[in-house]
């Protein structure tokens, strides 16, 4: 068996739910744990993964340059993180559009990258159009990011249907911007409400945390901030990525109804035809 890395796409359907923040934090967290990681910003035309990591000024080549063969190899386009030398990013092109890349090209790029890194995290654009198709083309696994809101969950469900059809597994759920007190009062969807629809393996719940916004603005991911609650949650997601048996921040507690329901609903995985 070769020691190929894993390609994980971070996706959501709905925009602005925290994909880029999640990618940057999980990437930094994995690097902190000594893994070799490459983050690929597949949001062509709306580049911002580099900003969240404070690497904007170092970009010379981007994803489209690599695909068009404008640089010697993908290595020339990789930007090394300020903090971790085992963390690299491949920025997206700001001045091109999504049609600049084809799914097969992404597929072969991912294949190359996973030969060189433990983890390849793909920051997916919002929507289900070309950008999404490109981002998932080379992915083995997926993390679906959603917020505890009806519309975000609906879009996530749509995405999960498409990921399942593309034989991507496992598909795991990250519930972002969760407000524990509000959910308790029933003003927001609870984990059970979300799982009632999505019924996915929960990889973590990241609370709403002002520090996330501040640290993104400063280009310093929250996962490295010991005081940040969201940072703690991201660290636990990292643990679960490395060891799927590690405990989640808030263990999944399915209600009686969803337990009963689960007996009926055939589980995920890759269902052919």
């Amino acid at each position: 068996m070769s020691n190929m890395g894993k390609v994980i796409v971070v996706t959501s359907g709905k925009g602005g739910v925290g994909k880029t923040t999640c990618t940057a934090n999980l990437g930094s967290g994995l690097a902190q744990q000594g893994k070799t990681v490459v983050l690929v910003d597949t949001d062509i035309g709306l580049r911002n993964l580099d900003l969240v990591l404070g690497l904007e000024n170092r970009i010379v080549f981007d994803l489209v340059d690599v695909i068009d063969g404008k640089c010697r190899s993908f290595r020339q386009a990789l930007i090394r993180d300020k903090r971790f030398e085992n963390l690299q990013i491949l920025a997206s092109a700001q001045s091109r559009d999504k049609d600049a890349v084809k799914p097969e090209q992404m597929k072969s790029l991912c294949q190359e990258l996973k030969g060189a890194f433990d983890y390849v995290l793909l920051d997916c654009p919002a929507g289900i159009e070309m950008g999404f198709k490109n981002a998932i083309a080379g992915a083995d696994e997926a993390i679906v990011v959603t917020n505890p809101e009806v519309s975000a969950v609906r879009d996530a469900d749509r995405i999960v249907g498409l990921l399942e059809a593309a034989d991507i597994a496992p598909i795991r759920l990250l519930l972002n911007r969760f407000k524990p007190n509000v959910a308790q009062k029933g003003q927001m969807l609870s984990v059970e409400d979300v799982q009632e629809i999505l019924n996915l393996q929960l990889i973590g719940m990241v609370p709403e945390d002002e520090r996330v916004v501040h640290s993104s603005n400063k280009g310093e991911p929250a996962v490295l901030d010991p005081k940040s609650k969201a940072g703690l949650a991201y660290r636990q997601v990292v643990q679960r990525l490395i060891d799927p048996g590690a405990p989640a921040w808030a263990p999944e507690q399915p209600g009686l109804m969803s337990k009963i329901r689960r007996m009926f609903s055939v589980n995920l995985g890759s269902q052919a035809n």
């Binding site: 609906r154 879009d155 469900d157 749509r158 999960v160 249907g161 498409l162 399942e164 019924n199 609903s265 055939v266 269902q271």
Partner: peptide, 9 residues
């Protein structure tokens, strides 16, 4: 149909 139908299906 032995599975869950998701949004859009």
């Amino acid at each position: 149909i032995k599975r869950t139908l998701r949004s859009g299906q």
